[in-house]
């Protein structure tokens, strides 16, 4: 079991860019480590370096914890390091109109909430953050997001929601099915799977 997450409150980091890929989140040259820590310092390194005004270079957003971004966030490589890097920055949730699939799976495994809202809600949150950065609240039980005094419904895959709010560990769930999985493999090997597993390379 992991800690259950039911609500998140924090200020917004406005990053209204579409198609932010995982190479941008964490460039490949920082992937030679063997631990799950140490990526936060390199997160978004290219954007930080290219633009002194980039949101993560601005001290006023330093303690903000809710990343609001554009379409198709996390596209590209399967590197889970992207999720680890984001979490190490202190980010507790990502809000966007859409997310890439593998990134979404990786976020779920690490209990990083991904909140899907309309483009217009993202734009509104970005505008508010620049004007007067009041905290927003994400309620994972009611799937509503409260920003600038307004309530917005959001979508999240129901199982992802369950994982977060119940603190479910997926590996624990899978381990409960271990015997059935083993049986499946044994049966398949006789009828449907023709891999020569024994001594193929010896």
């Amino acid at each position: 079991m992991k800690a259950a997450i039911k609500t998140i409150t924090g200020n917004v980091i406005p990053m209204p860019l579409n198609d932010i890929d995982t190479d941008i989140i964490i460039p490949a040259q920082h992937l030679t480590q063997t631990s799950r820590a140490g990526y936060g310092q390199h997160a978004f390194a290219r954007l930080k370096k290219a633009d002194p005004e980039f949101v993560l270079n601005q001290p006023r957003f330093a303690s903000a914890t809710i990343l609001v971004t554009g379409d198709n966030f996390g596209c590209g490589s399967s590197r889970e390091h992207a999720v680890w890097a984001i979490q190490e920055l202190g980010i507790q949730a990502v809000v966007a109109p859409s997310f890439a699939d593998i990134f979404s799976n990786n976020a779920q495994k690490n209990h990083l909430p991904l909140i899907t809202v309309d483009q217009s809600v993202c734009a509104q949150m970005v505008a508010l953050a620049h004007k007067d950065n009041h905290p927003v609240t994400i309620d994972l039980l009611t799937t509503t997001l409260c920003a600038g005094g307004q309530q917005h419904p959001f979508t999240i895959n129901p199982f992802f929601q369950h994982v977060l709010t119940a603190g479910l560990d997926e590996l624990d769930y899978l381990m409960n099915h271990l015997a059935a999985i083993k049986r499946h493999h044994q049966n398949a090997d006789q009828r449907q799977c023709f891999l020569q597993l024994a001594g193929a390379l010896s």
Binding site: S78, N105, K109, N157, E170, L171, M175, H185
Partner: peptide, 22 residues
């Protein structure tokens, strides 16, 4: 299909993973 490191750990431990049919 490509998976992240946690999912890889699931496959290593159990020979299966959790997934909704795309």
């Amino acid at each position: 299909f490509g998976i992240g490191t946690s999912t890889l750990a699931h496959v290593m431990a159990t020979g299966a993973l959790l997934m909704n049919r795309p």
